[in-house]
Amino acid sequence: MSDSSRHVLVHADDVTKTFSTPAGDVQAVRGVTLSVRRGETVGVVGESGSGKSTLARLIMGLQPCTSGRVLFDDQDLSTVKGGDLRRLRRRMQMVFQNPFGSLLPHYSAVANVIEPLRLHGIGSKSSRRARAIELLDTVGVSEHFADLYPTQFSGGQQQRIAIARTLALEPELLVCDEPTSSLDVSIQAQILALLAELQQRLGLSCVFISHNLAVVQRLADRVAVMSHGKVVEEGPTAQIFDAPQDPYTQQLLSAVLPVTA
């Protein structure tokens, strides 16, 4: 094994996913190979419907691959069962576009963060609460607001709480599917700063899916560009943005709408 591959945390190996629909079979992901090394952020950009979210679910083991396999820390997700799978699942977490949908509406902010700890039987009742308050503090939600319900927070605050919830189990991998696209620019700026800081402080590995190329350019170490279920180009962020090789990547970059004249 080469030196760099030894640090790979998750590796999708020629994965394929086919769905059956009334309109016929859809090949959502068609032979994608992608690695995420420890501490690295891989940006995934590309066409709507190109299979990014599906790939994310395959990487998370939330859906089985039609063919190919996903290795997490060298373990094939499809062969891990029961308690082992649960323990493995703890190490990877997902952040979705819609923060509200990933929070329990009838639980307070702090109860939302406690819930995964409780489910996994971590700590005592009081230590769980203390830990949850600490996590909320990490993402910038003051203890003062910990007992409010999700609807009483803004979208950005909800996304912070959702991130605190995913951090509760101390994951090594965070898969973010459009985590800021429903947020306004000022909250987006705050969440970006938060994610960058968490990476630094916790050494998180991250898969970051977004249509916002500027956000990806800021956060990602490497970028994979998807089109029609395939990765058409992959490389270091600067290379993808400064010297895109694939025609689709070039087309994507040229469609960006500038804010400043």
């Binding site: 605050q157 620019v185 000022s186 970006l192 800021r218 804010v259 400043t260």
Partner: peptide, 24 residues
């Protein structure tokens, strides 16, 4: 001005983000 300062832009990755302090 604050909204513009918080905006990210392709090619603008070197510019520090200036989020509007505080919350609405």
């Amino acid at each position: 001005k604050g909204l513009l300062g918080s905006s990210v832009e392709v090619g603008g990755q070197e510019r520090p983000l200036l989020p509007i302090p505080g919350s609405p």
